[in-house]
Design a protein around this nucleic acid. Structure first.
Lengths: 198, 198
DNA sequence: GTCTATAACTCGATAGAC
DNA sequence: GTCTATCGAGTTATAGAC
């Protein structure tokens, strides 16, 4: 039997993960170009050199972060799909995923980064684009899998077109909702859910 | 009869306006924190001191810019409303307004700035919020004014809820559309237009 | 793995000459 | 109205000690 993966006390995340956590929270509030090694170092009680040891460049750091974000998002989506059978339940809980993000006071990590797209290192840009592709693919699948054919958007439009619209509405509503109020965001998206599923 | 407003040759915009033009183009591509006085000075063949003469602080500059953006957007929307009678025409051409922005390679100025919201000076944040309020108000009016009651979104939902959804979809689609392709963006929004107006 | 120290650069902003 | 010159702070990143 292999030993515990943690060399030490096993009670809290290692430094690399603490850096990622902190970077994610700040990026979701401030965007790529307003987050610095200096910020993170101060909040984590480290020096910038220590962060550079774990992530040589800012591109490395944010690429690793978006990879983690994509991975956990995929796990969450798949759990969500297994736990719910109807398209309405699935879409509604998908919407709630992002209202949870807004509760924390930030926006979707990749939504924020997409606005800074022209200033991102190539490896980060690719990862952000991949995140949106993931979402579109998953939404296309659950919409196409719906057999009830309820809403007026079903049938006349392809599942992919509806998926693209849904993703756009989710990301856009986070950006445009007055005061970033999660309840108002949810209300806005429910208007679309009702239209898709009748 | 008053003299010409231009003291000189009247053939091209004055420096302040050239600065605003350049700042807008760069902000729409790079976001608030990746645009600097140094950038603008180089592209305009000026010094940073000259820009500071016209706009003492970055907050002044961007606030003035977003004010101008709100003003010209309002004029464009009102012309659009006068020239078209049906809700479908009005929504379709509203969508085209932003596909025109994407042709230039950038995003909606206020969409980009909203992603940087936590880093904006207060006066800029207020102006950006005002832009979204303008859009929501105008969309609410044209949706409420529609008498055909065609789409499935009409009636069951308030005009304001549909307006919020439409604005969110427009801003979000600019952000999430693969390769920022204007044609794909337009396609995505037409899915929503069809749903609203049947 | 974290530190000190620093290089090399960019940032927004200002003073004062012309 | 635009310039030169500069300040003080912040930026990413690296070298080398511990």
């Amino acid at each position: 039997m292999p030993v515990s993966p943690d060399p030490a006390t096993t009670d809290r995340p290692d430094t690399a993960e603490r850096i990622l956590d902190c970077a994610q929270e700040r990026l979701q509030r401030r965007g790529y170009n307003a987050v610095s090694y200096g910020d993170l170092a101060e909040e984590l009680d480290l020096t910038t050199a220590a962060i550079h040891y774990h992530f040589p460049s800012k591109g490395d750091l944010v690429q690793t972060l978006v990879r983690r974000y994509r991975r956990t998002s995929a796990q969450t989506r798949n759990r969500l799909r297994e736990k719910n059978d109807t398209l309405r339940e699935r879409l509604t809980q998908y919407v709630d995923l992002f209202s949870g993000i807004m509760d924390g006071g930030g926006l979707c990590l990749c939504g924020v980064l997409a606005a800074d797209e022209d200033t991102l290192p190539d490896e980060v840009r690719r990862e952000v684009r991949g995140f949106f592709d993931d979402q579109e693919e998953w939404l296309t699948e659950i919409i196409a899998a719906d057999t009830t054919g309820g809403g007026n958007l079903q049938g006349c439009d392809s599942a992919r077109a509806v998926a693209r619209l849904f993703l756009a509405a989710v990301e856009g509503a986070m950006l445009t909702t007055p005061n970033r109020d999660p309840a108002t965001y949810t209300e806005t998206l429910h208007t679309l859910v009702d239209s898709i599923v009748t």
